[in-house]
């Protein structure tokens, strides 16, 4: 009895957990419209945190704030403070290119570049000048593909276009591409929504393995997926962070009625 509760409650004690990224009073406006309201959320290193909530709740917006992808949208205005290792990422001194190399992103739809598999993975290292020789680059591409669990399937056809792969393979290629730049945080925006269940399971297994080396933030519409892959879960609704906590607690005993209603399928 007490053993079980100990297991259940270890994750709640944040003492041994290091905060990798943290949002303080994050507000986002798209022109006149406010999309996020005072979101406070800590992202713990080497954990998977899932952001759930109905469409348009602001979870993707928050995710895109974490590597400043919202910068590309002119009317988007972010206020509040988001830190990476204690440093404000919206600080003028921060180079957004360097930030995005540290905070990688994987998108909803697999989006391999119209290049070969090899070139897709080598893209990030090349633009950041991470390797000095061809051998070094080869090594980095190989290890990234290995870690993305794709190496066995593509090692004989690295020169074929990335688009020739299946959907699940393409998404793993995108993950390999993202981890090739050696990011510290990996943002995933509904990475499995375009994939079949088996490909999804493979990606989920991969996410669990990647947790050792990366901190992962995943936006998902599938609550089962959030329950399966993440240690922490945050529930957004209408631009507000309603509840955040250990995944077990959110999915068995959410404290907030809105969370309960959403995850049991009572509000859309």
């Amino acid at each position: 009895m007490s053993v079980a509760t100990d297991i259940l409650h270890t994750n709640v004690q944040t003492g041994k957990e290091t905060i990798k990224m943290s949002g303080q009073k994050v507000c986002v406006h798209y022109g006149e419209k406010q999309a996020l309201f005072d979101v406070d959320l800590d992202i713990v290193a080497n954990q998977v945190i899932s952001l759930i909530g109905p469409s348009g709740c602001g979870k993707s917006t928050f995710l895109r704030c974490l590597n400043r992808m919202n910068d590309t949208i002119d009317i988007c205005n972010v206020s509040g403070e988001i830190t990476l290792d204690g440093q404000d990422i919206y600080d003028k001194a921060i180079d957004v290119v360097e930030l995005r190399a540290r905070v990688g992103m994987v998108f909803q739809k697999p989006n391999p570049f119209p290049k070969s598999i090899y070139e897709n993975v080598a893209y990030g290292p090349r633009i950041h000048g991470m390797t000095r020789s061809k051998d070094e680059l080869d090594e980095l591409v190989t290890s990234s593909l290995r870690r993305a669990g794709l190496w066995q399937e593509v090692k004989d056809r690295l020169d074929q276009p990335g688009t020739s792969l299946s959907g699940g393979q393409q998404q793993r290629l995108c993950i390999a591409r993202a981890i090739a730049t050696k990011p510290e945080v990996l943002l995933m925006d509904e990475p499995c929504s375009a994939l079949d269940p088996i490909a999804t399971a493979i990606i989920e297994e991969l996410i669990d393995e990647l947790r050792e080396n990366f901190t992962i933030v995943i936006v998902t519409h599938s609550m089962q997926q959030a329950a399966r892959v993440s240690q922490k879960t945050a529930f957004f609704h209408l631009g507000k962070l309603i509840e955040e906590g250990p995944t077990e607690q959110i999915f068995t005993n959410p404290h907030h009625k809105k969370t309960q209603d959403y995850i049991t399928g009572r509000i859309g």
Partner: peptide, 9 residues
């Protein structure tokens, strides 16, 4: 149904 939260309990 993959019950969650209150339904699961």
């Amino acid at each position: 149904r993959q019950p969650m939260a209150g339904d699961l309990r």
